[in-house]
Design a protein around this nucleic acid. Structure first.
Lengths: 210, 210
DNA sequence: ACCGAAGTGGAGGATCTTCGTCCACTAGCA
DNA sequence: TGCTAGTGGACGAAGATCCTCCACTTCGGT
């Protein structure tokens, strides 16, 4: 993820570092970037000391996670773009691979704190540009294909998914997950020029949402 | 809102109480039910002392706000149901009157803390039931009319709006608001059997979302 | 106009949360 | 085997938030 600055990390240290980023990714995605450092450390299976040794403060951690994640999503977007037959299907595929996407959006748009931190960092700004360009070309392409309604922009798509992908805190995990999948499907129907996405799961009734 | 328990409040006290609830409603809707009490007091133009005199603790305030708000939404739903020609249009109208709705949903579903508090209170449970019944009958009705896709339930509708109506923190207020309106419209198209809602505002591009 | 009770604001002590350091201990690597 | 990078988590500092308390103000009945 980053070139070795001087001495390459010792094997176990590298492993821990990766675990920290992975844990932070998961937790940031679910609870936003302000969760206590100790919680992240616990989730990563390390002590706080280790976390602070690797990332001198929260900002550094957020930056590292952002770089990791933007890169990941940008690559997903490029892969989808290259492999799918149409822009529309690439867009749909990207939106369904939504967990990573969600974190990017959360970091970039939903948290003012994170946004302030990231806007300064040239690496991240560049990644962000790449990503937006990619999405914009998918959106435009899908519109030219006649699949995507023409009265929306890349910003609308981003906003929608930023909101939709937020997890709902729920005791029943599978309900929450199914609900997200259904929401995305409905959303896609709303974006499509002509609807036709079949919904996964079953219609949620009043008993499902407690 | 509540019958006079013993001595009716003095005029100025009643006014302050109303201001507190109004302020709490606005702030809870925007930032969730965990905001500092002092902030609520400031927004209501009173001191913390006054707030605590009226509502012995945060729970009491949340309960009062919830009663106020559930009642409001239930009445909106009934009014829409009675006045609109179809269940579908009643549903759409209700969804556009979304600010109140959002708070109800936020309190009922998005905050575990609030949910725990409210589930105990019989008044609120009853209100909640009324409201769900109302929404369910709109959903079923709209489906029978052929306007609403039949593979969704009232729970789906609730979930969708719970997510969509969250405000995005943004420097540019009007962008955030327009975005919400657009999202709701797209959403409605996704729910509709056949799309056709015109979107407000203009397509959001990359520059709009900073 | 007066007065007692009801109401008010906000300073401040208690409590809880989170931060980030420090150091005795452990485990890779040569 | 020894040297050093790496580790974990207890701990004091810093800050946030809670809620009480009381000197002062305002309302409203007479």
């Amino acid at each position: 993820m980053s070139a070795d600055p001087q001495t390459p990390l010792r094997a176990d240290a590298q492993r821990n570092r990766d675990q920290i980023i992975a844990a932070a990714r998961a937790i940031f995605a679910e609870h936003g970037p302000e969760v206590p450092m100790e919680e992240i450390a616990r989730a990563a299976g390390v002590g706080v000391g280790t976390l602070y040794r690797r990332f001198p403060d929260r900002e550094a951690l957020i930056r590292a996670v952002a770089v990791d994640n933007f890169t990941r999503v940008r690559d997903d977007a490029r892969a989808a773009s290259a492999e799918e037959p149409t822009c529309w299907s690439a867009l749909v595929r990207l939106l369904y691979q939504s967990v990573d996407l969600q974190l990017s959006i959360q970091l970039a748009m939903l948290s003012i704190r994170a946004y302030e931190i990231l806007r300064e960092d040239p690496t991240i700004v560049a990644l962000r540009e790449d990503l937006l360009t990619e999405v914009e070309s998918l959106v435009t392409g899908a519109q030219q294909e006649g699949h995507l309604r023409t009265d929306v922009g890349a910003g609308d798509v981003a906003m929608l998914f930023a909101l939709l992908l937020r997890r709902i805190p729920s005791r029943k995990k599978h309900i929450a997950e199914m609900s997200t999948a259904r929401n995305v499907a409905i959303m896609i129907d709303g974006l499509q020029s002509h609807p036709g996405t079949e919904l996964p799961g079953h219609p949620l009734g009043r008993d499902d949402i407690h």
